[in-house]
């Protein structure tokens, strides 16, 4: 059974500009996404897109931190998008999130011990004090911290250690899926490498699966077997990571070509213009004003995400036609 399935998820925000003017911002449009998370479909999924592409909103919808404006969210076959918080306990435990800014995601006034005890207390109320303590010590060690760090406050940890602590809090409840929202972006190379390996190790040890949300393609390729590309609030392509070179959507290809490389001379494909404003997406395909391969239909008709081959979907009028 599919672990988590979003069906035509959409989220819009009303922003008031002045007293009377209201503006609607469509952050996520009709996104359908199956997170099977089995070996075949790929244990770890990467969600790639640039800032403003709606990937952070999609993450908040998938983790039910926000309710979708439209669409359904199925968790193990059960519709949960409108369930009250009290009935979400199992879902909440199985789906954990690691936020981009680890420092901000740790309560500055709680020591490490208390930060880790909070989810344990909520999800495993039967644990005795001793069991909780042992579990905390064990997880601290598994993420590369030491049990002596229990009493320390977040600001006493280095940036890398704060991230490890945030990871510890996510895996301590044995989740099935951990969503990493830009969890390795903007870090020093060696720290990023350490964290990526930590993710891999924890994945094996605990059977954790990842949804890695990132704009960092090399990291996604390293950790994930499946890549979902978003643009302007929609999924434009969804394909196995090892087939990225055979991607069909011009945006995915532009992303790949923009990635700086050592080999060969670096000549990034030039995307003219700017990413679209989420309050006014262009008609037709949202990418068409910047697309180097646009044809006449692109400005009129919105392409739908269609199956190109097994486990490869793309939303482009040209896909599958060449």
């Amino acid at each position: 059974m599919t672990f988590l399935r979003g069906e035509r998820l959409a989220k819009s925000y009303i922003i008031s500009r002045g007293w009377w003017q209201k503006e609607e911002i469509q952050a996520v449009h009709d996104v359908s996404l199956d997170l099977d998370l089995d070996i075949e479909a790929g244990k770890n999924v990467g969600l790639v897109g640039e800032s403003g592409s709606g990937k952070s909103t999609l993450v908040r919808l998938l983790s039910r931190l926000e309710r979708p404006s439209r669409g359904c969210l199925h968790y193990r076959g059960k519709e949960i998008s409108t369930l009250p918080e009290k009935q979400l306990t199992s879902f909440r435990r199985q789906v954990q999130i690691i936020f981009q800014d680890a420092a901000a995601s740790l309560n500055p006034r709680h020591p490490a011990e208390k930060i880790l005890a909070e989810p344990l207390r909520n999800y495993f109320p039967a644990f005795s004090r001793k069991e909780r303590r042992d579990k905390i010590d064990q997880v601290l060690q598994q993420v590369g911290l030491s049990p002596e760090d229990r009493k320390r406050y977040p600001h006493e940890f280095s940036g890398g250690q704060q991230r490890r602590l945030a990871i510890a809090r996510a895996v301590i409840v044995n989740p099935f899926l951990v969503i990493c929202d830009e969890a390795t972006s903007g870090l020093d190379v060696s720290l990023q490498g350490q964290l990526l390996n930590l993710f891999l190790d924890l994945g094996e040890k605990f059977g954790v699966h990842y949804l890695l949300v990132s704009h960092d393609l090399p990291a996604v390729r390293y950790l994930c077997q499946r890549v979902v590309v978003m643009y302007a609030g929609r999924i434009v392509e969804d394909l196995p990571a090892n087939r990225l070179d055979a991607s069909l959507h011009p945006y995915t290809r532009a992303l790949l070509k923009s990635e700086p490389r050592l080999e060969g001379s670096f000549s990034p494909q030039f995307l003219p213009g700017e990413p679209p404003d989420s309050s006014a997406y262009p008609a037709g395909c949202p990418f068409h004003p910047r697309c180097p391969e646009r044809i006449e239909i692109c400005a009129r008709e919105q392409p739908f995400l269609k199956e190109i081959s097994a486990r490869h979907r793309a939303a482009c009028h040209l896909a599958g036609k060449q």
């Binding site: 983790s63 931190l65 918080e85 306990t89 909440r92 435990r93 789906v95 954990q96 999130i97 936020f99 981009q100 800014d101 901000a104 995601s105 740790l106 309560n107 500055p108 909070e118 989810p119 909520n122 999800y123 945030a166 809090r169 409840v173």
Partner: peptide, 14 residues
């Protein structure tokens, strides 16, 4: 708006 509050929700705190 701070992420630690979101994290607390995700940790199951009411």
């Amino acid at each position: 708006q701070k992420e630690f509050v979101l994290a607390a929700r995700s940790a199951g705190t009411g």
